[in-house]
Design a binder for these strands. Structure first.
Lengths: 149, 149
DNA sequence: TTATTAAATAGGAATTATTATTGTTTAATA
DNA sequence: TATTAAACAATAATAATTCCTATTTAATAA
């Protein structure tokens, strides 16, 4: 996900009817900037140098609010805590079992295959909103980039 | 997932080098029986009538142990707590946003499509172990069965 | 069947993660 | 500039999980 400017963030926040406070901007920036779908603790660490008085309660509340208005999303994980992301583009997640990372994987061709596959399916009592992959994997070398081409 | 007998459960547990204690059997049975990928609290409620003295700490420890020896699996969720399942067959999860259910969806044809798709991909620095769908959906009627045909 | 022993367990303290509460502060608007 | 509903701080309360230590027990050998 590409980082966006403070002005754009302000606009995103205002346009959903929220006040574009400095904390909300900082939270959104932190989630964008942190690479590994951060936990609350990670976000707090990232923010507290510039906002040392930020309250944990307010951080939780702001994260919840930003998720409710669909500016952020919660990421599914088996860890037993919350994780967040700012990338709202459709993408899949690679869960690295050895490094505990959650890595984005975007693949338009695959998205199309899945879309066409489920278009032919008869759904009973169910409305599908989104289909993504959960890819379980191991990172082979901690220092090298991962790719799927 | 089909329920299996106490004898079979004992055998599963013993064969991975663990003692097949009555608690471990009860835990495994509870996870099999409970339909919605239960939390620790749900498992505790299911077990405590027959094992009223079971300690929460031991329950957590046993669940962790059973996951480590791959008799149970943790289920990915955005809820911020652990969820478990006993179904080790390859399957996908439907996450119902309105009812908060996590429903199994098995589709061999789709598994094959995905397998073939990723066989052609060049992986760099990554070993894929498993690929599943994360289907976000809404249950349309709370009283009717869900199906994808 | 008995003795042994490492593993399992209870019980609850400790820690971590999250939510609730209440008074204070502030961004946006008129 | 004044107003006000929303945002915030601070922390208590609650919920979820892990840690610790003494006790119990399943499995095994004899």
């Amino acid at each position: 996900m590409n980082l966006i400017s403070v002005t754009d963030i302000k606009h995103k926040i205002s346009s959903v009817g929220l006040k574009a406070t400095s904390q909300r901007i900082a939270i959104y920036q932190a989630v964008m900037k942190l690479k590994n779908h951060p936990t609350v603790e990670m976000i707090l660490e990232e923010i507290s140098p510039l906002h040392p008085s930020i309250s944990v309660g307010t951080l939780y509340k702001n994260l919840e609010t930003l998720v409710e208005v669909s500016l952020l999303e919660k990421v599914k994980s088996e860890e037993g805590n919350y994780r967040f992301e700012a990338n709202l583009d459709k993408h899949n997640h690679i869960y690295c079992s050895n490094t505990k990372e959650i890595i984005d994987y975007q693949d338009d061709e695959l998205d199309l295959i899945l879309f066409e596959y489920f278009k032919k399916k008869k759904l009973k009592n169910l409305k599908i909103n989104d289909i993504r992959l959960q890819i379980s994997a191991e990172r082979l070398n901690i220092n090298k980039e991962i790719s799927i081409q």
